[in-house]
Every structure is written in structure tokens, then in C-alpha cells.
């Protein structure tokens, strides 16, 4: 058993947003980076830095969800139960990296589901898969 999440090396990102494209394609059959579960903050003209923002798996969204519509999967991902989510948005302001959001095309909040498609296309090593084994408890 292991926990997996996306690891970010901010200095390596070149802001191409291929990760965001493939994320939206994989989940919504649509080319629309505004539906991606990660985003890239651009800090220009100074200092000149792209910061990928990804789910840190902190679990705050689960804690505040009034509907019990979010659960933690064994690999560490926080999964939205679409049928239960009322799109109330309580989880949005507590998300520190700011990657939980609503989109007018869907009636539930969008949260990263650990598919890691984004990491497959990153050509700079800015986002990679981080794996941490979990000790089996007695």
C-alpha cells in the first residue's frame, strides 16, 4: 500500500499547460484547461516564475463538506461523490493551493482524482509522481 500524490518542482515549470489540457481531456472529453484539477500560477514580469498548483491531499475539503460527499481513497486521493455533492462550494475557500473549483458545465466541485495523466506529459520534470509507502497498522 502506498500514498501517491503529485510532487511539484516550481523552478522547472515552463508554463506550457499541457498538464491542464490532458487533465480536462481525460475527465471531460473536452479541450478546456479551465476544467483542469491543477493550475499554473504565472508570476510575471517579476520575478518570472511559473508555480504549478496541485492537490496537496491535506483533507480540509473532506473536513468541511456538509454533505459527506468527499471521501479519502486508499492512495490518498480525495474523491467527490458526484451524486451527493450539492455544489455548495464550502470546500473551495479552505483549499490552500486553490485547485478546487466550480465550472458552469457541471453541478459538482472539481477535485483532483490522482490519475497522474498530467505528469506523463510534463517534459520539464516540474510535476512528477511522489510515492510514500504506508506502514500497515496492526
Amino acid at each position: 500500500m502506498s500514498i501517491k500524490r503529485i510532487r511539484v518542482s516550481p523552478g522547472k515549470c515552463s508554463g506550457c499547460r499541457l498538464c491542464m489540457q490532458i487533465c480536462a481531456i481525460s475527465h471531460y472529453d473536452e479541450i478546456n484547461p479551465k476544467k483542469a484539477s491543477l493550475k499554473i500560477e504565472a508570476h510575471f514580469p517579476q520575478p518570472g516564475l511559473y508555480k504549478p498548483k496541485v492537490c496537496s491531499q491535506c483533507g480540509k475539503c473532506l473536513e468541511v463538506c456538509p454533505e459527506g460527499a468527499i471521501y479519502r481513497r486508499d492512495d490518498g486521493a480525495y474523491i467527490v461523490i458526484k451524486a451527493k455533492c450539492t455544489n455548495c462550494g464550502e470546500c473551495i475557500p479552505v483549499c490552500k493551493p486553490g485547485v478546487i473549483f466550480q465550472h458552469r458545465d457541471v453541478d459538482y466541485v472539481i477535485i483532483c482524482d490522482n490519475c497522474f495523466k498530467c505528469t506523463e506529459l510534463c517534459n520539464t520534470g516540474a510535476i512528477t509522481i511522489f510515492t510514500r509507502p504506508v506502514r500497515e497498522s496492526a
Binding site: S14, C16, R17, L18, Q21, L49, Y50, N123, T124
Partner: peptide, 9 residues
């Protein structure tokens, strides 16, 4: 920093 256009690797 390196800087890419949209969708370019």
C-alpha cells in the same frame, strides 16, 4: 526561467 507557449513541450 524557461518559458513555453500554450501546449508546447
Amino acid at each position: 526561467t524557461h518559458k513555453a507557449c500554450f501546449g508546447c513541450w
